[in-house]
Design a protein around this nucleic acid. Structure first.
Lengths: 183, 183
DNA sequence: TGATACATGTAAGGGGTTACATGATTTC
DNA sequence: GAAATCATGTAACCCCTTACATGTATCA
């Protein structure tokens, strides 16, 4: 899937491994992320597959950059991915739920402390969505009003994060309340 | 983390790789899962670490079973994990959001079709939580009323899934409506 | 003077999936 | 007679993380 993330981001103007990483960190990071080392490896593989090509650009006062661009085949494969609907949901792994599943063994105070910490983390994440992420999208729109349609979709992914975090916060509150009452 | 899942499940009575897999599939599957092959590999590693021990039991009319049990060290390490709170949230990867992020390129009909399919999948998952998963917990409680405290925590994880799925459904409806109106 | 930004990579190792291999018993 | 259940494992491969390696320019 990183493959498709890179092919997609290349169309939005990022063109080196380093730039792709930065772009990702300020756009898809909340639902798709990657380390630089992995990005470099994947770009190389993409080039071998013939989906991108690269050229080395020398720079003054900066290290050389390897600039990637999509090939026709790369564009085609990306578009095909966009159109293909997957018939199953990914299987999640949620470490906190795994732990909670076994928490009958744990004392009330440790439990409440861990739930409270989770609440703080999720609250902070939600707040970040409501301010930083919104600001990034608004900023792009101001500098490039022709991106309106793109920004609509970025807004959908943002909204997904907000609703998910709100639901998590409600769940944490409900769970803490039950524990207060029942244990 | 599979390590802790296995240590935890061993305390609930599952004792072979095969049983652990079955147990997982009917309890933690929605927030933690593993393939049989990986379970066998991890159990072997756990034994080398000294956290479990194993004995081969011969059976009539069935293949031999390798029966695992927790060592004192295993119990200790598990308990320590339970008590340790993690100060950061796991970074999620959500393929559907990644795709949606790039969907400005896609036509309205393909888009709505994919969103509708997602809605069906999530609706089905929610329904499964509300019926099957609830039934499994109720069933354990009926056969073993002393598990009441454990069942409370299983209920928390179930409730988390229900709220998350409800939020996702609301988001999908909202998103489809916006697309109908705006595109 | 030390940290951060820019810029690209390799290597080792961890965890996971898929495929392969075996083989008896039970159920449809 | 075929498929599913019980039961355990190995091997190849993929993706990812962490650590290592290098080097200049700018900023505090």
């Amino acid at each position: 899937m990183l493959k498709y993330a890179l092919l997609g981001l290349l169309q939005y103007g990022a063109s080196t491994g380093y730039e792709l990483k930065q772009f990702m960190d300020t756009s898809t990071a909340n639902f798709w992320h990657a380390k630089l080392s992995q990005i470099y490896v994947t770009l190389k593989a993409l080039e071998q597959e013939g989906l991108v090509t690269s050229d080395v650009q020398e720079q003054e006062k900066r290290p050389d950059r390897r600039v990637y661009s999509l090939t026709a085949q790369g564009t085609q494969e990306f578009d095909q991915w966009l159109q293909t609907s997957s018939a199953e949901l990914p299987q999640l792994k949620e470490p906190f739920l795994l732990k909670l599943f076994f928490c009958a063994r744990l004392d009330k105070q440790s439990l409440l402390a861990q739930l409270k910490l989770q609440r703080e983390l999720h609250q902070k994440l939600l707040h970040g969505y409501q301010t930083q992420t919104r600001a990034i999208i608004a900023n792009v729109l101001q500098n490039a009003p022709e991106m309106e349609r793109d920004a609509l979709f970025w807004g959908f992914t943002l909204r997904s994060g907000e609703l998910a975090e709100e639901a998590t916060l409600r769940w944490l509150d409900e769970t803490m309340e039950t524990i207060q009452k029942e244990l």
